[in-house]
Design a protein around this nucleic acid. Structure first.
Lengths: 201, 201
DNA sequence: TTTTGACCTTGAAACTAAAAAAGTCAAAAA
DNA sequence: TTTTTGACTTTTTTAGTTTCAAGGTCAAAA
């Protein structure tokens, strides 16, 4: 490894880890495999990250950051709030289809409180983004909503819930195939449409 | 057992089974326990039901029938479609809080196709009931919807999905505590409100 | 300061034995 | 003839154990 800074090496490790994760799933990837990919020893990995979990979290935070940044770009200069909300669904669709293979929920081993806290935070941020858009919609006269934050929370939760209720499996931990995923997206768009009508009234 | 007909005895078995299920959960109930409650032998149970699974299904079908009948009563003589949809949420709330302890989803052992088919059927029936109410709402001029069946499907799936997306656990198989359950119901009512507004537009 | 081989520790499969529950049946009872 | 049952076999679950790969540590080397 001929990197200049500690940070650079951490980034390289995260790159290698993410590559493995998206190909084979995070739970099937070992520290040795990542080390081998980088032509370094496993012990080196532990010089940059305290443990496997911290590395997993770093990978997750990185992709989450890209996700939210793309979303927040959408909240800047909103021409139409309706359009912005639709775009958000599309952003989420692309994000999920890109990273679904890393089996994010298999990492959540028994009450990992860091992961849990991170998910809560992500949820909040997603709702905040929706709140901003709805507020913009109110400002432009597009929507008539009393409590934008409440409406945003409800919208996000309703859209998210469809991921579990639309597919006909009753083992809700299983992940979705292409067709099921497409159906969920379609239903999300339909719900958003009627939800928007509801916010206009 | 001094019952007159085979049917009566089957009913008694179903009564005893349901009692056990709601107290201790279906997965924790053995055929011997049910037999003991009835002061009969386990072999007798097998005279009336081919196997444990068939008995489970019979119990499920019975409570499902009561559930749907109460719902269908709501579709008769609808004064206000909005009110009817709200009442349905209340019916479901009471039903779930009454039967949540029987741990219905632990029965679904690996690909039980009968259970699966039953759930699909129940889902359809629930959507049909909502379709009827929405159609009534259209007839009375309360709603303006092009495809009542599609709207009903979307509404039911959206409401159902909240059960998974509102609680902050990410192990979505766990069942809900009192507070989480109350939050889900509250969110369902909020969503219904805005969904109704959307159908009026 | 960074890297590493050698080493230790842990946790999750893979097996196993024992226990419990499911399911069967010929004979008895009604 | 229909229903019930005790005694039985088979299947599933559970608890305990072994084993091994993967996680994690450290003193020495680069």
């Amino acid at each position: 490894m001929h990197t200049e800074t500690k940070d650079e090496m951490q980034e390289k490790i995260l790159d290698a880890a993410l590559k493995r994760f998206t190909h084979y799933g995070a739970s099937k990837t070992t520290m040795n495999e990542i080390a081998d990919d980088l032509h370094c020893s496993k012990a080196s990995l532990y010089y940059y990250f305290p443990d496997k979990n911290a590395m997993h979290m770093a990978v997750l935070e990185r992709i989450a950051e890209a996700y939210f940044q793309e979303m927040e770009k959408e909240t800047q200069q909103v021409k139409s709030a309706s359009k912005a909300l639709n775009n958000i669904i599309e952003i989420r669709r692309i994000f999920v289809s890109k990273f679904c293979r890393l089996e994010i929920f298999k990492i959540l081993q028994d009450g990992n409180s860091f992961f849990y806290a991170g998910m809560i935070k992500a949820k909040k941020r997603e709702i905040e983004i929706h709140t901003e858009i709805i507020k913009a919609g109110i400002a432009s006269g597009e929507f008539k909503v009393k409590h934008p934050a409440k409406a945003a929370e409800l919208l996000v939760q309703s859209l998210m819930g469809l991921r579990f209720s639309v597919p006909d499996h009753f083992r809700n931990d299983a992940d979705l195939n292409e067709e099921q995923f497409a159906q969920v997206i379609e239903k999300q768009k339909q719900l958003l449409e009627i939800f928007i009508k509801g916010m206009k009234a």
